[in-house]
Design a protein around this nucleic acid. Structure first.
Length: 482
DNA sequence: CACGTCTTGAC
RNA sequence: UUUGUCAAGACGUG
C-alpha cells in the first residue's frame, strides 16, 4: 500500500467527461518541481467531492481494510491495553470473532475501553503521558484512520508535512530551506502548548461533522475521544484532549490544524508545518513580530488552542531548531546543537565500560545506529562536526578495547600484536593513570589507527557522509497516470 | 515488483 | 518497561 502505486483520489481531468481514478507513482519522471501546482489544482477539486457521507462504514469494515489494519497493529508489536490482550492474541481473536466484530462496528454497538496510562521520559527531560488503547481499539482506529486518510489527506495543505503519507521531515526541511534562500530569513517559530491535551472535543466533532455524514461513525470517533484514562484503578475522563498513542490521533491533529494552514494560505504566508511544529518565514523583523502576535491571537481565540509564549519566538535561521536542523543563511541545512548532543549521549551509553561484550558485538550494535542517524542528517552541512564526533567516538572505542585487558601483560601483548614495538608496549601498558589517559597515548593511537578501525568494520560517519555528498540530490519525481 | 526482519529520525 | 503516525536506510525470502 505504501510503496509504489496507490489510488489517492479522484478528479475530473480537462478533456475528460467522466471521473477517472488517479494514481500517484513514485520514482517516475515528470512534474518534479512543478508537481506542487498540479497537485494543488487537483486538491481544490477534491474538496468538492461528497464521498465522505457515503459508504464510509462499509469501507472501514471491509475485509481488505480490516486485514490491512490488523497487519499494521500486529507488526507494530505494541503492548497490551487495559484488557491485557497482546497483539498476537488479537490476531487469534480477530479470526474467530470476525463477523461479530464487524457487525458491532456497523450497528454502533462496539464498546470502546479506557486507555492505559504510561509515563515515558521525553528526550529533553520532561515526562510524556501516553494513553494506550486496547489492541482491539487500536485495530478499529487503524481501520478508521486508513479510510479517512484517503479522503482527508488530498485536501490538506501542501505545506503540511507531519504524519502524512508520502511526506517526510526531509520534504519539510527542503521547503523551509527554499524559503530562506529566497530571502525570507526571519523565522516566526510557533510552539503549541501540549497540543494533544488541549484539543476541544466539541470543536473537533463539529469539524468532522462538516465532512462526515455517517452518524454512527461520528459517534464511534466521539467514543474514542472521550475514552477515560485508567490509572491504578481509577478512570478519569476529560472533556478535552485526545489520547497520545492512538492510531487516529495523528490524522485528527492534521484535521484540526488544517484550519490553521488554510488561514495562513489566505494570508499569503510562506510557512512549513510539521505536526504541531510551525514556522512562518518572512523578510523582516517588524513583519515577523506582527505575524507572531496576530497568529497567536488567531490560534487562541478562533481555534481555542494555547500558544506557549515562552517557547514561541522570532529567530534567525542559523539559531533555529526545526526538525533537528538549523538553517544557514543561504538556505542550506545545518545540524542543531541538541541533535549532536543526543547522538553523543546515545553513543556514550553504548560504549560504556561495564558491558561484558566483545568488540565485534559492540561494532555490530553501533553500525546500524550510526548508519540510521547519518541517513537522517545527511543533508546537513556538517563535515567539521562529524570529524569531531568521530574523533570522540574513536577515543571511546580505544578506551573500550584497552579496558578489556585486565592485566598489564595482556595489554602489552595487544599493543605489540597491533604493531607497536615490545619496549614501548610495555612502557605504556605499565602506566596506571586510568583508561582515558591510556587511550590518548601515542602507542594506543599507533596500534589502533585508521587502518585498525577499518579492520574492525566500524561504520564511518565521515566517510559515508562524503560518499552521500557525491551522489545526485535524489529528487522525488511524481508521475500522474490516468 | 511483492513480502518480511532490523535501525534511525521527526512529532 | 514505551503507544502512535510518517519518512528514510540496511539486510533478508521469493
Amino acid at each position: 500500500m505504501k510503496a509504489g502505486k496507490r489510488i489517492i483520489g479522484q478528479m475530473s481531468l480537462a478533456g475528460l467527461d467522466e471521473w477517472s481514478s488517479v494514481r500517484a507513482v513514485k520514482g517516475a519522471d515528470v512534474f518534479c518541481n512543478q508537481g506542487g501546482k498540479v497537485r494543488r489544482e487537483w486538491l481544490s477539486r477534491c474538496t468538492e467531492e461528497r464521498a465522505l457521507t457515503k459508504e464510509l462504514m462499509g469501507k472501514i469494515v471491509s475485509p481488505s481494510n480490516l486485514v490491512a489494519a490488523l497487519r499494521q497493529v500486529v507488526s507494530n508489536k505494541g503492548s497490551a491495553g487495559i484488557d491485557g490482550m497482546s497483539v498476537e492474541e488479537l490476531r487469534q481473536w480477530f479470526s474467530s470473532h470476525y463477523h461479530e466484530f464487524q457487525s458491532q462496528i456497523i450497528t454502533g454497538k462496539y464498546r470502546v475501553e479506557s486507555v492505559r496510562e504510561v509515563q515515558i521520559p521525553k528526550p529533553n527531560g520532561g515526562v510524556r503521558i501516553l494513553g494506550i488503547p486496547t489492541a482491539k481499539d487500536r485495530l478499529v482506529q487503524q481501520a478508521i484512520s486508513q479510510v479517512l486518510s484517503l479522503h482527508y489527506d488530498p485536501t490538506f495543505s501542501d505545506r503540511s508535512y507531519g504524519f502524512r503519507p508520502d511526506r517526510g521531515a526531509h520534504d519539510a526541511l527542503r521547503q523551509a530551506g527554499q524559503e530562506v534562500s529566497e530571502g525570507r530569513d526571519w523565522i516566526v517559530d510557533i510552539d503549541l502548548e501540549k497540543f494533544f491535551d488541549t484539543v476541544n472535543h466539541d470543536r473537533l466533532m463539529w469539524l468532522l461533522g462538516t465532512r462526515i455524514g455517517d452518524k454512527t461513525l461520528l459517534k464511534l470517533i466521539g467514543k474514542f475521544l472521550r475514552a477515560g484514562m485508567l490509572k491504578d484503578g481509577l478512570v478519569s475522563q476529560g472533556v478535552k484532549g485526545m489520547p497520545q498513542g492512538s492510531p487516529l490521533s495523528p490524522l485528527l491533529s492534521n484535521i484540526i490544524l488544517d484550519e490553521l494552514d488554510k488561514e495562513l494560505e489566505v494570508r499569503g504566508h510562506r510557512f512549513v508545518r510539521y505536526a504541531d511544529d510551525l514556522i512562518v518565514m518572512v523578510k523582516s523583523e517588524p513583519s515577523a513580530k506582527r505575524v507572531l502576535s496576530s497568529l497567536t491571537a488567531f490560534i487562541e481565540q478562533r481555534m481555542l488552542l494555547k500558544v506557549n509564549k515562552s517557547k514561541s519566538k522570532i529567530s534567525r535561521p542559523y539559531e533555529l531548531n526545526f526538525l533537528g536542523h538549523s538553517i544557514l543563511i543561504e538556505g542550506r541545512l545545518g545540524l542543531s546543537k541538541t541533535s549532536e548532543q543526543r547522538l553523543k549521549a546515545k553513543l556514550k551509553q553504548l560504549t560504556q565500560r561495564n558491558r561484558g561484550i566483545s568488540l565485534e558485538q559492540l561494532v555490530k550494535e553501533l553500525n546500524p545506529i550510526l548508519r540510521g542517524w547519518l541517513n537522517y542528517f545527511k543533508n546537513a552541512q556538517m563535515i567539521g562536526r562529524l570529524k569531531a564526533i568521530e574523533g570522540w567516538l574513536n577515543r571511546r572505542i580505544r578506551c573500550f578495547r584497552l579496558k578489556q585487558c585486565k592485566r598489564a601483560f595482556t595489554m602489552a601483548k595487544l599493543l605489540h600484536r597491533l604493531g607497536v614495538p615490545w619496549n614501548r608496549s610495555w612502557a605504556t601498558a605499565g602506566i596506571s593513570k586510568g583508561w582515558y589517559r591510556l587511550s590518548v597515548t601515542p602507542a594506543a593511537h599507533e596500534a589502533m589507527n585508521l587502518k585498525w578501525f577499518g579492520t574492525i568494520g566500524l561504520y564511518s560517519l565521515k566517510e559515508n557522509y562524503v560518499k552521500h555528498l557525491k551522489k545526485p540530490p535524489s529528487t522525488t519525481h511524481v508521475r500522474w497516470v490516468v
